[in-house]
Design a protein around this nucleic acid. Structure first.
Lengths: 194, 194
DNA sequence: CATCCTAACTAACGGTCGTTAGGCAAATAT
DNA sequence: ATATTTGCCTAACGACCGTTAGTTAGGATG
């Protein structure tokens, strides 16, 4: 059939918005901007979407659900901490690299959500953080990980994974799976030679 | 003399702006917002500052210069790579934790700078990144570091350090020096027990 | 052919934006 | 005591904001 390239207008709008929200930020992107990119008038967007914020909501929650779905699936596998850790990092990086624009918006523009969406979003993020926190805890109990401060360790890992958008390009020589592998290596063993 | 608490209006404006730019982003912060926080009218700000962007410029370049000054000083010390690395990370984290609001603005709002400031800023950042890149290179040459991909390693380190604002509070139990120490430990040896 | 639906349009709404001009009262300097 | 400077004010500017209303052209459907 070979379709899948031609997207309907709603999808086009969301695609363009993701791109602009990433590039210029949500607040600095106007509806006239998005419309201009598609060669139509700002008012015409409202035939397809309800509001500017609705677009942001969709981006944020779509990605949040991907992260949570992935963590739920991994949790069910009952793996040893080290294996679970590896797979979790790999899954996270896969989602980030496959959704670069959305990821940046997800990471930095969620604060422009209004209530109750803002609170919902924070809750989902907390749930996902806890998934990782439990992996670290389990690893420590298994005497496999040595963790001096849990919060610090957790956020070193998250920051490194979430910072990928700063330097990753799909056309570069490092592909998602290799990034995951190398990053796990750094987290587990560091960069010191001995 | 015990002054230093009462600041002149210009300083107050910059202080308030840093805070709001961090909290809501540059684009979503209005001059009327800043003024309101200080109990005056928006137009009155212009007795003390030239423009909204001037404030952003000051925040961004002030911090960029701190980072570069610190790296220049360390470079002059001619330390072995491992020691230089430790001191560089410690210095970076000290600057971040001592300038939390500015740091967040520096990290995320620089893109709203107009030319030629935008290009200047990117250049300074590049210079600073190269300082770290050279530390990694030197460590590899000294056979102290094993680095599979330089860019990945570099950005894991930067992301972890720059992500500190996500979780650090000055009143928490972890103080900047301990954070630096533990983070260096994670970078060098990882979290694996063996 | 007549009808309905879709996706766009123009025009406009009330509001907010950054910024300028000009004035005025209090503080400071002469 | 007088002159100057400072720090704020009000009023307003043109531009842009997100969004609504009403319309229209063209294609699909009966």
């Amino acid at each position: 059939m070979a379709t899948a390239i031609i997207k309907n207008r709603k999808q086009q709008i969301h695609h363009t918005a993701k791109n602009l929200f990433r590039e210029r930020g949500y607040a600095a992107t106007s509806m006239r901007h998005i419309a201009g990119e598609l060669g139509i008038e700002a008012a015409s967007l409202y035939s397809h979407i309800k509001s500017k914020e609705e677009i942001l909501q969709l981006i944020c929650f779509e990605l949040a659900e991907q992260f949570l779905k992935s963590s739920d699936e991994l949790q069910r596998k009952k793996l040893p901490a080290k294996d679970l850790f590896k797979q979790a990092v790999t899954a996270h990086i896969r989602i980030i690299t496959q959704n670069m624009d959305s990821s940046v918006v997800f990471l930095h523009e969620w604060r422009h959500l209004s209530e109750p969406f803002l609170s919902d979003f924070k809750l989902m993020r907390k749930r996902y953080e806890n998934f990782y926190k439990n992996i670290l805890k389990a690893g420590a109990e298994e005497k496999k990980f040595q963790i001096r401060d849990e919060k610090l360790t957790l956020f070193v890992i998250f920051s490194a994974m979430n910072g990928i958008y700063e330097w990753f390009t799909p056309k570069g020589k490092l592909q998602p799976e290799e990034i995951a592998e190398q990053m796990v290596e750094v987290f587990l063993n560091g960069i010191l030679k001995y």
